[in-house]
Structure formats: structure tokens, C-alpha cells
Computed example of a mutant assay.
Amino acid sequence: MKTVRKIIEIDEERCDGCGQCVISCAEGALEIIDGKARLVSEVYCDGLGACLGECPRGALHVVERKAEAFDPEAVEAYLEQKEAAEEKVPPMQCPSARIQTFPVSRDITPALAEGAAESALGHWPVQIRLIPPTAPFLKGADLLVAADCVPVAYARFHEDFLAGRVVLIGCPKFDNVQEYLQKFAQIFEKAEPRSVTVLTMEVPCCSGLPMIVRKAMEAAGKTTRDIPVEEVVIGARGKILERNAWAA
């Protein structure tokens, strides 16, 4: 039954699909569908507006209108269903996701100086969706969490960033943000990485990636005192625009 109550409203013209609102909605009421934030169901939205401050484009507003009543029990069932559905799809089903490690030097500069094309990649897979939180190469590693456009834009990706690090590549605009959040929380809790470098492009949708890392660290009970984090922003023409260490 519909009643007049507060509920979230999304301005689709302003929304760029960055996914930050999805991360901040504990009820799972928001999802990125066809590149835009969408309200999954009125019954999942409590109307409190926890997502408002996370939108860099000001696309979210709380309005009063007729809507289905907020249903906490439906939210709980929905979140359990989503979690169960994700667990039913083992990330290692795909043959290309078989865990592998490769011997590689932490310093590939000499090889590059001699004209050799040496890769700094020391493991496989590299996609966030395919890497299990229990992968042995994550344990105590220096993590490089990179938006998947970065290696194309930044010419010295291997020597400047990848060498000596374990890379996890993905796109918060097109992939499942909640899945990323849960996976990184498990990685921070179980693998206890030594450090994290978050490497993004200057485009707005990339801003969701550092937000995922931050929220996942909070969920795992970790701070930058436990795991130092550096955020690097790359321009579309391949220049480093910003480089900041997160405050403790």
C-alpha cells in the first residue's frame, strides 16, 4: 500500500553512473543499470538519504511522494538473496581465472634500458571479479587497485606502478559495486596487504574506486595506520594529475 513518505529521487541527466551512491546505501536500494543509478525497489529505500553526500554530481534528492512503505524484512531477504546468488558463481569456473604466479624482477628498468619488453606482471588473474580473496599472491602484498583504462592512458604503467605490486583491475561504472566492496573487505581482513595504491583516471566515474577501497577498509576494521593508502589520478593524456597519501 502506498503512503506519502520520504524517498530518494534520481536526476538522470545529472547522474554519470559513478556508483558512489550504491556503496553508501546499506539497504541495497540503488544499483547502476545501463550506466545510471536506479532505485531497485521503493520498499528497499528508507528515505534517510545516506547516499546524498556521496554523489559528486548532486543527482540525488530526498522528496516526499506516494511510495510503497519501507520494508526492513524485505531488505534483509533481498540482501541475503544477492549474497547467495554471488556465492553460487565460483570465480574460478573460467579457465582464464586459474591462479598463476610468475617470477619477475621488482626493478625492470635495466631491461627497458636495453630495449627489452619485460612485463612486470607477477600473477594471474588480474580482474577484480576473478581474483578470490584467498589468492596466495595477495597475502602481505603491496596492492595496486587500478581502473582498467589506466594502463592504456599511462605509458609507463609497468615500470612506474606495476613493478613489485599485485594488481587488481576493474571498472566501478560497469562492474558490480557491491561485489567489489565485499571482496575488498575480505581481502583487507584475510590477506592483510602491506599497502594499497589506488590508480584512477580523471573522469568522474573513476571516483567510485577509491570510495570502494575506503568503505571496504572500514568494513574490515582497518585504517591507514594498518594499511597505508596512496591515491593517484591520471589524466586522459597520460599525465599524473594528483598524487596523495590518505591521512590516518
Rank of each mutant, 00 (worst) to 15 (best):
I8P: 03
E12K: 15
D16Q: 15
G19P: 12
C21F: 12
S24V: 11
A29R: 14
I32L: 15
I33R: 12
I33F: 11
G35D: 14
A37M: 12
V40G: 04
S41M: 09
L48S: 09
A50N: 10
P56I: 02
R57V: 08
G58W: 09
E64M: 08
K66W: 13
E68H: 11
Y78E: 09
E80A: 15
A84M: 14
P95Q: 00
A97D: 02
R98K: 12
R98E: 06
V104H: 03
L112C: 02
G122I: 07
H123V: 03
W124K: 01
Q127C: 03
R129G: 01
I131F: 01
P132N: 02
A147F: 05
P151I: 10
P151W: 03
V152F: 05
A153Y: 01
A153C: 01
F157V: 06
H158E: 15
D160C: 06
D160M: 13
G170C: 00
G170Q: 03
K173C: 04
K173H: 14
V177E: 00
Q178V: 06
Q178R: 09
E179T: 00
Y180H: 07
R194C: 07
R194A: 13
V198F: 06
V203T: 00
L209Y: 01
G221I: 00
D226R: 09
I227C: 06
E231T: 13
E231R: 15
A236M: 09
G238C: 02
K239I: 08
L241N: 02
E242W: 08
R243Y: 04
W246Y: 15
